[in-house]
Every structure is written in structure tokens, then in C-alpha cells.
């Protein structure tokens, strides 16, 4: 029973975070919340008895994807700065 409540809370957090990721104007916040969706999803995988998938999602989906997004965003911002 407690697991069901935890899963519902995690799911609501994920939905709120993905709405922020899609609709927020500030793109840094959007990227961070998309990383947060992956991180919360990895806890959900743990509840679904899949520790392997949880480890992969936490290290790859949440960590490296966010870092690559930030590198590309930083590069685009720097480009814009040089233009102006």
C-alpha cells in the first residue's frame, strides 16, 4: 500500500516537471526539470523491481544527457554573445 502512495507521488512530480520542461520560458530551468523527470523515473524503476534500469537511467538519462544539453546551450549562447 505504501508503495502505491509513493508511486502516485512520484508520478505527480514527474508530470509537473515535464510540464515545466515543455512550457517554461527559461530554457535552463526546462533542461534541469527534464533531467529531474529522468531522476524521478529511476526511483520508479526501483519500485518496479528493476535496479539495473534504475542505475542506467540515473547515470545516463539524468546525468550525461543534461550535461550534453548544457554544453550545446552554452555554445549557442556564446555564439549569440559574439553576434551582438
Amino acid at each position: 500500500m505504501i508503495y502505491i502512495i509513493i508511486a502516485i507521488v512520484l508520478g505527480i512530480v514527474m508530470i509537473v516537471m515535464s510540464i515545466i520542461a515543455i512550457h517554461h520560458k527559461n530554457i535552463t530551468l526546462a533542461i534541469l526539470s527534464a533531467g529531474g523527470v529522468s531522476l524521478v523515473a529511476s526511483i520508479l524503476y526501483l519500485l518496479l523491481a528493476a535496479p539495473d534500469v534504475a542505475l542506467t537511467e540515473a547515470s545516463i538519462g539524468s546525468g550525461l544527457t543534461t550535461i550534453i544539453f548544457f554544453y550545446v546551450l552554452n555554445k549557442i549562447k556564446k555564439h549569440k554573445h559574439v553576434e551582438e
Partner: peptide, 17 residues
């Protein structure tokens, strides 16, 4: 244990990041 080549590789890559 849980884990494997892909996860370990990603952790090593995070160390380099």
C-alpha cells in the same frame, strides 16, 4: 550485482566530465 558495462562506462565518462 546491478550494473554492467554501459553503467560503468557512463560513470567513468562522468568522472572525465
Amino acid at each position: 550485482t546491478p550494473g554492467g558495462g554501459f553503467q560503468g562506462g557512463a560513470i567513468i565518462a562522468s568522472a572525465f566530465v
